[in-house]
Amino acid sequence: MASHRNEPKARHRLTAALAVILTALCGTPVLAGSITMSDRCRVPDTYLRFATALERTGWRIGHRSPVRIYILGPLSSTARFETELERRLPGINVEVTGGQQAGLADDDFEMLRTAVARLQPDLVIWQVGVRDALASSDVEDFENVLDEANTWLEHRGVDLILMDPPFVPHIRHERIYTPYVGEIGLVSRTEGVPVLRRYAAMQYWSIQREKLRAPPLDTRATQPCVNELLAEAISRAASR
């Protein structure tokens, strides 16, 4: 569907991969000015800014209407995310539901279609990339599915946020994840899809810990921070 973009894609992909590596080497020093982010979860402002506004979600929040959010992916802390978001959007009724991933991005898209028909959410948050990385899926196919899903949701007026894979420090096979992180970033830039750059944010936290000579980042313990990050980014995008 995006044949007009084929030529610059390779360059975009290279840039995306470089961006992933560079982020690991040097975090952006400008920190978010928000007072609602806890100290240990603070990240550069750029990680809290989406490529585009969340139109439907923003409209509903602006009209103080309830917001329905569907999260596809690991769901261990949906309740905590809901609390974080409601803390940032006082008086707004936020209803978060979730579904387990079906498999690769392609299978997930099918699941999303059913979930949208059933739940009619205002916003879909799709945690994507880990399964495809483990399976070494074709990166081009992966990107096409994200494009298709974005178009499909756009036609229905449903907002979409992609969330890239989590980062784990000192993993030998880390190279399997970076193409997919890069591809999600590419979709964000070319299609204007909001992406929560979890991978980069976690890399940033990891580097900060290393600078302070603290023990390495415990990925599983960062979930509360990811919830904060997501809630903060949504509340900022919605209030644009």
């Binding site: 690991p74 261990s76 880990v130 989590p166 784990v168 993993i171 030998r172 994840y177 599983r220």
Partner: peptide, 19 residues
Amino acid sequence: MTGDVRFLEAIHLDVLVDN
């Protein structure tokens, strides 16, 4: 063996460890 906790999350077995 690898330290990669994403394996658990990918199969939704993280809940067995966390909860």
